[in-house]
Every structure is written in structure tokens, then in C-alpha cells.
């Protein structure tokens, strides 16, 4: 019987939310096709796999080994591809994170099958059909996948996790061979100096641009982000100026984000910036120029000096969240 394979992503032994989203996509596809969802968890022994049934998995396959704590591209690829080949899977689904965007193509190459990346909708009613943004979000492809299997990576925050009453029976699968430098070996993951929420994973993003005038003024952005429980983002102009790290850059040459709320402070809204955030559910812009292009995509705007608007906004948010 055919099925859908979902390759889940863990960090420090905890399965990420984006994988719950991928499971939701797999579940709805499997329901349309009348087949099962298998969740493959690659990671260190002790990775928490409780409750994956409720997120939509009929079966949870674990491939655990100490060496798999960090992302080992070649070995992860081998494990996932072997599993994908051992079953009659219609599709292999992953979250389009930095891991998923590296692993997905490897699985597809090993299977000799097509890949569609960063998709924002999937349907199985007439073969597998996906929608995906291209040209920096300025156009959308609707694509039909004409062979099976295929690999699909799904854009973070574009799908909502489901809750179903599945048991999600556990089964161990092979953990593949050891990793050497001749296949590339990840030796460490350096944490950033101040461990913060990543802009690509956050459901609320507060981003700052050149309107902040100086690196020090980003405290305003940080304070508002903290009040909202969100992450800090940046335009390329401020990254190039060295005010913020590249890891925070939103846009065509930065990260693509689809948070529930995106607040742009002193960002003009250049086309390459919009490429990275136009699919946010709610966009707020604060800019002193009423003609700034950012207002064309913003749901709510305040025309004004951010130095006057942001401090009372942060205060009001703190109050609103307390009350």
C-alpha cells in the first residue's frame, strides 16, 4: 500500500514545529489518496517522539545514533533515501528549513525523482499538485508532479499542525554507516553569541531598517520583539552596514519568512525585501514617508517618526499582553 513519508527535524532531541506542519501536509495528502503517513525521525537516542501520532503519523520510524545529533548531510540522506526506497511512497515531505533545503535535494537525487521546494500548497485530488512562489515571490507556479515518488519541502509557517487521534506506533529502522570527511562531516554547531529565536522560525518578527539611523538604536527593535515574544529581523541595508548579522536579514538574499505578524520599522519596502516577507499573515509598517512602498503591502500602517512611535507601542503591547 502506498504511503507518505515525512522526514522530521529535531534539534537537541526535540522535534521542531516545522515538522508538525510537514506532518499536517502529509496527513491531508494521505487522506486524499487513502494511504498512511510514516514519520521518520533521525537523531540522537532519547529524541522525544511522544505525541507524533496526534500530529498525523500512523507510524513513527526512529533512526537513532549518537552521531546523528548534528545534521550529517550524507548519512541523513542515505537513511532517508533507503527508507523511501523500502516502502511504496508517493511523496517524501520535509520542512523547508536550512536542513530540509539541503536534505531534500539529496534524497531526490538518490531516488532519481523530482523535487519541488518551499511549496505553499499541496493537493492530491488529481495526482500530486503543488503551488510554489518563484521569482522572489513575484509569481506562483502551479506544478503537477507526473512521476512517483517525489520529494516536497514545505515552507515554514505556511501550514497549520493538525490534531488527530492516531497512536503512531514506533518502529526502529537502520541508522546507516558512520560519517567521515570523505562524505563531509559536521563537527560542531556554533551557537550565536546571544542565543535568540531565529527569524525564519519565529511566528512574530520585528524588523528594522536604515530608518533606525544607528546600530545602537536597534535596542528599540529588540525591546518591541521581546515584548511580543518575537524575533529580530533586518533589511539588507543595515546588514551591509554591519549593524546586524546576516542571519537576521530578510529578503531575497536573506531569509524568507511567513510569520503571523511582521512589523517593519524604518524599512522602505524594496522589492528584494518584500520577496522575503510578503507572505506574512499580518504586516505592520511604521515609516515617516507616507509614500514608502512598504505601505502597499502593509495591513496596518502608522506614518510617523519611529523614535516617537515605537517606545509607546512597546509599552502598550506589554500592557495588552499582561491584561
Amino acid at each position: 500500500m502506498p504511503g507518505i513519508l515525512t522526514v522530521l527535524e529535531q534539534r537537541d532531541g526535540v522535534v521542531k514545529r516545522v515538522s508538525h506542519e510537514a506532518l499536517a501536509v502529509a496527513r491531508s495528502l494521505a487522506d486524499e489518496l487513502g494511504c498512511e503517513v510514516h514519520a521518520l525521525v533521525i537523531g540522537p537516542p532519547g529524541t522525544d517522539v511522544d505525541g507524533l501520532g496526534q500530529y498525523g503519523a500512523d507510524k513513527v520510524l526512529t533512526s537513532f545514533d549518537d552521531e546523528l545529533k548534528l545534521y550529517q548531510a550524507s548519512r541523513y540522506g542515505q537513511i532517508a533515501a533507503e527508507q523511501a526506497m523500502s516502502g511504496d511512497y508517493t511523496a517524501v515531505i520535509l520542512g523547508a528549513t536550512s536542513l530540509g533545503k539541503d536534505l531534500g535535494p539529496r534524497i531526490a537525487a538518490r531516488l532519481g525523482c523530482p523535487l519541488t521546494s518551499d511549496v505553499t500548497s499541496v493537493s492530491g485530488s488529481d495526482g500530486v499538485v503543488v503551488t510554489r512562489p518563484v521569482f522572489a515571490g513575484r509569481a506562483l507556479y502551479k506544478l503537477k508532479i507526473t512521476t512517483t515518488p517525489s520529494v516536497i519541502t514545505v515552507r515554514p509557517n505556511a501550514f497549520t499542525p493538525v490534531s488527530v487521534a492516531n497512536a503512531g506506533a514506533l518502529e526502529e529502522v537502520s541508522a546507516g554507516e558512520g560519517v567521515t570527511a570523505s562524505v563531509a562531516r559536521t563537527v560542531e554547531v556554533k551557537a550565536p553569541e546571544n542565543a535568540t529565536l531565529d527569524v525564519a522560525e519565529a511566528s512574530i518578527v520585528v524588523a528594522g531598517g536604515r530608518g533606525l539611523k544607528e546600530a545602537e538604536h536597534f535596542k528599540l527593535v529588540e525591546d518591541l520583539a521581546r515584548a511580543l515574544g518575537g524575533a529580530v529581523g533586518a533589511s539588507r541595508a543595515v546588514v551591509d552596514a554591519g549593524w546586524r548579522p546576516h542571519s537576521e536579514q530578510v529578503g531575497q538574499t536573506g531569509k524568507t519568512v511567513s510569520p503571523n505578524l511582521y512589523i517593519a520599522l524604518g524599512i522602505s519596502g524594496a522589492i528584494q525585501h518584500l520577496a522575503g516577507m510578503r507572505t506574512a499573515k499580518v504586516i505592520v509598517a511604521i515609516n515617516k514617508d507616507a509614500d514608502a512602498p512598504i505601505f502597499k503591502v502593509a495591513d496596518y500602517g502608522i506614518v510617523g517618526d519611529l523614535f516617537e512611535v515605537v517606545p509607546p507601542l512597546t509599552e502598550a503591547i506589554i500592557k495588552a499582553r499582561e491584561g
Binding site: R11, A184, K190, E201
Partner: peptide
């Protein structure tokens, strides 16, 4: 990567 920098040897 999200939340860090991976160091890879090959």
C-alpha cells in the same frame, strides 16, 4: 542554520 553556524569538514 537556524540558531547557529554549522562547521563542516571534508
Amino acid at each position: 542554520v537556524e540558531g547557529g553556524v554549522e562547521v563542516v569538514e571534508f
